[in-house]
Structures are given as C-alpha cells and as structure tokens.
Simulated assay, not measured.
Amino acid sequence: MKTRRIMAALEQGSGGRGKLILGAPPVGEPFVVWGQRWLSETIVPPAVRAGIDWWHVDNGFYWPANGRPTGYYAITFRGLSPAFITDADRTRLPFRMAEWRQRRGDHVLLALPGMHYGRMLGADMAAWCRTIAERIAAHTDRPILLREKGCIRPLAHDLARAFVVVTHSSKVAVDAVVAGVPANVEPSNPAAPVCSTDLAEIEAPKMPERNAWWASLMAQQFTLDEMRSGFAFRAMSGVKDRFDGLCSAAL
C-alpha cells in the first residue's frame, strides 16, 4: 500500500514522463524504487553495473513519513546517500539546531545499522558490527552504550550523556547532530558532511557549521503532495543534472 501510494504520487508529478509499474522496470530504463529488499535487491545491482539511472526512496531525514500519508520521504540518486547541494534553498524547512555541546557526557553511543542496509550494493553490515566495538576501543577508553536498530529506549535518553555517537549509516547521526552531539560515521551516512569519518578523531570529533548541510538534506526529502505537484520530480531531475555535470567535468 505505502509503495503504491509513493509511486502513484511520483507518477502523477512526472507530467507523463513516468509510469507506475508493478515489478521490474523494462531493461535499460531508469527507475525509482522504495526500500532495500526484495525488488531492490533484484533490479539495483544490474542497473549499477550497466550505469542506468535509478533513484531510491526511503523515510525522510526530518519528520519521516514511516509509510504514513503524512511526513517526508528522502529520495537519493544512484545510491543510498544524499548529494551535498551547496546552493540549496535555506528557506525550505528551516530548523534551529542546538548548539554543539562543549560539555558533553561520558559514553560513546554506538548505534548499530539494520543488517539489510546496503546489501544490494555489496555492503556487509554484519561484518562492520562484528569489529566496530574493538575499533572504537583502540581510540578511546570511554564506555560504549549499545543501541540496536528498533531500540525502544527514547533516543533523547541515549544522547543525553553521550560524548559522541558512532554509527555506520543510521539516521541516528542526523538526530545527534541536530541535538548538538557530534558523530563519527561512514562516508555514506547522510550526516557525513558534518561528522568525523575517521575513528582516530573520536576524542576530538568535528563540529562544523551545519546550515548548508541541513538545507541540502531538506532539498532531497518530499511529502506526497510535493510528489504529486511535480516539485519532487523537478528536484530529482536537478540532482541528476548535477551528477551528469560532475561526470562530464571529470572526463
């Protein structure tokens, strides 16, 4: 139901350039897909190998829809990570983030990713999880508080006395940065532009300016109404144009 609702909204907003298809798209054709399992695992790897354009829909970075008719959905191009749009409109969904905490807590909050994250692109979250605590311990003596995906504890509780957050791809890093808690993440994380990506920096994590990053994220999440109106389709096309321009410049 939620997949059909999203895709029908995008079809309506495409102005006749998109078509809702149940199952795999025609061979060689660009596509939009929701989620990371089942159909995604079938159609994304061949598209990556062939250089076919594809977009991925997931829950939004801020006020996520989580399958509901209201809220936001993130849409990323040729991957699971949002682009960093340096000239994004800062008046769209402005949000006053907490100042970076200068006096923080004692523990490292380790937020584990879902085991299916990135599997369609060859990522192995189980392998990352098996070694991450040991790798953290090589750079700090701070205790580690483990937070598994789907944890029922309020995130605010775990962040309240966190010195830093460590995670792979989880949007927990976005929530942490917004709350003023620095994070150490993998480069694929949506918060990576304002986080450390080297565990050697765990005791002195980066705490940069965040407004440009926030505007960039907000430019890549949309409501169903924004999909139906064509706003999301135009934004998706704009990211593709930027991507194609960078590839042309690299050549």
Rank of each mutant, 00 (worst) to 15 (best):
K2E: 09
K2G: 14
M7W: 03
G13S: 09
S14V: 09
L20N: 02
G23Q: 12
P25R: 06
P26V: 03
V27F: 13
G28P: 08
F31R: 00
W34G: 00
W34P: 01
L39M: 10
S40R: 13
S40I: 01
I43E: 06
I43G: 01
I43D: 06
P46G: 10
V48K: 15
A50Q: 15
G51H: 12
I52L: 15
V57P: 00
D58C: 09
Y62W: 15
P64N: 13
A65F: 00
N66H: 15
G67M: 09
R68C: 09
P69A: 09
Y72P: 01
Y72N: 03
T76V: 10
R78H: 08
G79F: 07
S81D: 06
T86Y: 11
D87L: 04
A88G: 05
R90Y: 06
R90K: 12
P94I: 07
R96S: 09
W100R: 04
R101H: 13
R101P: 04
Q102H: 13
R103C: 05
G105S: 10
L112F: 14
L112E: 14
P113H: 09
P113K: 03
H116W: 11
H116P: 01
M120T: 01
G122S: 11
G122K: 11
A123K: 14
D124E: 10
M125N: 07
W128A: 03
T131S: 07
R135D: 11
A138D: 11
T140P: 12
D141C: 02
R142D: 10
I144K: 00
L146G: 01
R147C: 05
E148H: 10
I152K: 13
P154Q: 12
L155K: 15
A156P: 03
D158H: 03
L159V: 06
A160V: 08
A160W: 09
A160E: 15
F163H: 15
V172P: 01
V174Y: 01
A176Q: 06
V177W: 02
V178N: 01
A179R: 04
P182M: 05
V185G: 03
P187K: 07
S188C: 05
N189G: 05
P190A: 08
A192C: 07
S196M: 08
D198K: 07
E203K: 05
A204D: 11
P205M: 10
M207E: 15
W213F: 09
A219D: 03
Q220F: 06
F222P: 00
D225Q: 12
D225V: 08
D225M: 08
E226F: 03
M227S: 03
S229L: 05
G230W: 13
F231I: 04
A232R: 00
A232I: 06
F233M: 04
F233P: 00
F233N: 00
R234D: 10
S237T: 07
G238S: 04
D244W: 14
G245C: 05
C247A: 15
A250C: 11
L251W: 12
